[in-house]
Every structure is written in structure tokens, then in C-alpha cells.
Design a protein around this nucleic acid. Structure first.
Length: 228
DNA sequence: GGTAAGATCAGC
DNA sequence: CTGATCTTACCA
């Protein structure tokens, strides 16, 4: 049951097409060396220079540089002036593909996650302390929350998530042997404008998971049909 | 050197 | 629904 014992996903796991890697990642665990672990329930694929939604679309800018390297490395970026978002680089080296980790079901180290999610934030305010306990469900529900729960910041950009047991890795992916998730729904990706590939169905969610973020629930309409 | 938009979240 | 908050990339 110890998180450190679970078999880890190796470099080859991340070498394929980002859309396949994304779907195969669902149900697997994100693990930290301090015991924090969570099962991924929502991810998005970004296809590098072929994808207007990708930060790598404009080539190897300083920010996107990590994605042009080999698969299995962590790409962290700062979003909306407040949040960090975490990706794992995948596909063949040079293709700059990645999978954005959007939401997960917390499994172990929930106390650490809760601490990370509430520290630095004002709790209580006026009057007696309310001390509201954040629901487990909200700890990793969204890309910014997930990184906060795991303590991931820009300082972690470029970490090798597929370094293997022999190296002093701080974070990795693991397979705990649980049954694969039932149905996976593909929807359009969250937060992309029209000109950035908003219609592409590269967000993958474990159907019905309460730990997934809000977002499109269904696959994009076939054509022309405008929903919302 | 200036600026618009952005792979978001919490609170009202 | 809106405000917070600031980096990135692009234009002059």
C-alpha cells in the first residue's frame, strides 16, 4: 500500500502520441516522495507545433523549451498571473507534445495536500475562526489546484518524472494495479479561444468522476451545431 | 518599451 | 459572474 512500492511508469510510456498517452494516463497515479498520491481523472493533450492551442505552437520559446526535449519531463507554466499548471512532455523528442494534468482523486497524503492548499490563504477573517475543512473532492479538482496540492511550482519545471527508482526522483507516475477506469469521455479542451483549436476533442475525462473539474460534459457536436 | 490575452480560481 | 494578478509574446 506504500506509494513508493507501486511500479513506476517509464520513459517509453510517454513516447507515443500525446492523445494516446493522455488516455492511458487516466487511472494511473501521480506520486510525490513525501507520500502524496492521487489518481488522475482528467487530462488534456497538446500536440506541439501542429496545435494552435499549445505553448509550443510558436516554436521553442524560453517558456516552451522543455517540451522540445525528450518525453517524461515536467513542463510547468504560470497561468493567469496566479496559478501553476503541470504537464508531462510526451511523444518523440522534438515534437513538443505534452499532456496537461487537470484533475485527480486524492489517495494518500491528504493532510499535506490540504495544508498546501490552505496555507498562504486567509482563513477565518473577522469574528471567530470558522476553520472550514476543504472537501477532499476539491483538493485536486482543476490544474491549478492539483499543482497547489502537490506543491508544484515553476521551480519544478524540467524535473524528470521518468527517471526511475535509482535516481533521487521527487515525483513520478505509478500504476497501483487498480482496474482501468470505465468509460473515458473526450471533449474539447478548456479555456482555449476559437483560433487556438477550441473545437479539438483532446480533453479526456473519466466519465462521471466527481473529482473532475467542471467543463464540457459531452463530446463536441459533429458540425455546425452550436451548443452554448 | 507598451500591451493584450491567457491551458485559472475563489468568492459574491 | 467578476476580480485578482503577472508572464509571455508580439508590435512599434
Amino acid at each position: 500500500m506504500a506509494a513508493k512500492r507501486w511500479p513506476r511508469l517509464g520513459r517509453e510510456f510517454f513516447a507515443g502520441d500525446a492523445r494516446d498517452v493522455a488516455q492511458q494516463l487516466l487511472g494511473n497515479l501521480l506520486v510525490r516522495d513525501d507520500g502524496r498520491a492521487a489518481r488522475l481523472v482528467e487530462v488534456e493533450a497538446y500536440l506541439g507545433m501542429d496545435d494552435p492551442g499549445s505553448h509550443a505552437f510558436r516554436g521553442p520559446t524560453p517558456r516552451a523549451k522543455i517540451m522540445f526535449g525528450p518525453p517524461g519531463y515536467l513542463y510547468v507554466y504560470f497561468s493567469y498571473g496566479m496559478h501553476w499548471c503541470a504537464n508531462v512532455v510526451c511523444g518523440p523528442e522534438g515534437k513538443a507534445c505534452a499532456v496537461l494534468l487537470r484533475a485527480a482523486e486524492p489517495l494518500q497524503g491528504l493532510d499535506l495536500m490540504r495544508l498546501a492548499r490552505s496555507s498562504g490563504r486567509r482563513v477565518g477573517g473577522d469574528g471567530p475562526e470558522k476553520d472550514k475543512r476543504m472537501p477532499d473532492r476539491d483538493l485536486c479538482r482543476g490544474p491549478g489546484r492539483l499543482t497547489e496540492a502537490f506543491g508544484v511550482t515553476g521551480a519544478d519545471n524540467g524535473l524528470d518524472l521518468a527517471a526511475g527508482r535509482r535516481s533521487p526522483a521527487r515525483m513520478w507516475f505509478a500504476d497501483d494495479g487498480a482496474a482501468a477506469p470505465g468509460r473515458v469521455v473526450a471533449t474539447r479542451r478548456v479555456g482555449l479561444s476559437k483560433l487556438r483549436g477550441a473545437e479539438l476533442p483532446w480533453r479526456y475525462v473519466v466519465e462521471g468522476s466527481p473529482f473532475a473539474s467542471r467543463g464540457p460534459r459531452q463530446a463536441p457536436a459533429p458540425q455546425g451545431s452550436v451548443r452554448r
